[in-house]
Nucleic acid binder design. Structure first.
Lengths: 164, 164
DNA sequence: GATCATATTGAGAATGATTCTTGTTCGCAA
DNA sequence: TTGCGAACAAGAATCATTCTCAATATGATC
């Protein structure tokens, strides 16, 4: 027995533009919470960046976002399932849009500077990995929710810097 | 082109007992550092636990280890490649023995309590994943070093607690 | 559109994990 | 032994994160 950890989303299923914000609003409303302008600015920062960002980076790029609110709202958006926290990249956690808003994908993480870049695996391999991991989890008594697959290495910039 | 990220280790290649400590000592000596009793206590705690541990857990279990020394030495052992830091599990980072001292493996991480349990995939799948990830990394200009594969879910205890 | 109850905000204080500092101790080599 | 540098431990300092609370914005209801 092995329940799939996720359903692969295809290009046309990923929300974009106003549609994306509607989906976020819906998620929050369902939980009795509001999609305020502050929260929207956080989501917009993540959409525009097109790669996972740290909290300081988001705050630095959006002058109207107070740090204390950023911490609070990033937590809230995470527990609403709208964004995802990635803890492996260096000092700070990185945030990205969660799966219905973005394709299922994995990460290249630079061990030197912490930069994170998205990568995709083909569906076939993804399904295989998914199935095996679910099985292993269930065998250990765990209830699987999702999986993450990271490659640790050096980004182009740090690779050059290291070879000097 | 895709360089393997790691070589699979087999049972008989994993160092145990005194052999393991010799290997750690060698790694440190190569870097002009000593394998002191304090550092040895940390390694022993990780060997005995048989699963990744947080720093507070290690300190709590080894009365003679001062927190400030634990931080310092865990960092040092990590940069010597003897232990590995896992950042995804809850508030605190977890530590485990690094690969030549332990088989290549992956983790089940409880989203509620942060507990981490090791799992293994068969070599065939492992090689396939490895190859595809390396290719993706190289295509993006990254120099791959290792990969990690985590399943996020609920441990048996927290699964029960959640269903009440 | 005015009012109300409540969710949300943001500035700064409080917390708490991690890192630094310092004087002391230890380990290795001569 | 003796000496030198590495390593140690206790506590101070730092800094990211969380908490507090008065002010504000929001959406529902009239």
């Amino acid at each position: 027995m092995s329940t799939p950890l996720h359903r692969h989303t295809h290009s046309d299923e990923v929300a974009t533009g106003e549609e994306l914000h509607d989906l976020v609003a819906k998620r929050l409303t369902e939980r009795g919470q509001r999609y305020t302008s502050g929260r929207r600015r956080l989501i917009e920062a993540l959409v525009e960046a097109e790669h996972p960002m740290t909290l300081p980076a988001i705050v630095a790029g959006s002058p109207d976002v107070a740090p204390s609110s950023a911490y609070r709202n990033l937590d809230l958006l995470e527990s609403a399932g709208v964004i995802r926290r990635i803890s492996s990249g260096g000092d700070h956690a990185h945030f990205e849009l969660a799966e219905p808003l973005l394709h299922h994908h994995h990460h290249l993480i630079c061990v030197d500077c912490g930069t994170i870049v998205d990568i995709h695996l083909d569906d076939e391999l993804e399904d295989l990995v998914d199935e095996r991991l679910s099985k292993a989890a269930v065998d250990a008594g765990f209830t699987p929710i999702s999986h993450s697959l990271d490659v640790h290495g050096r980004c182009p910039t740090c690779t050059k810097a290291a070879s000097v």
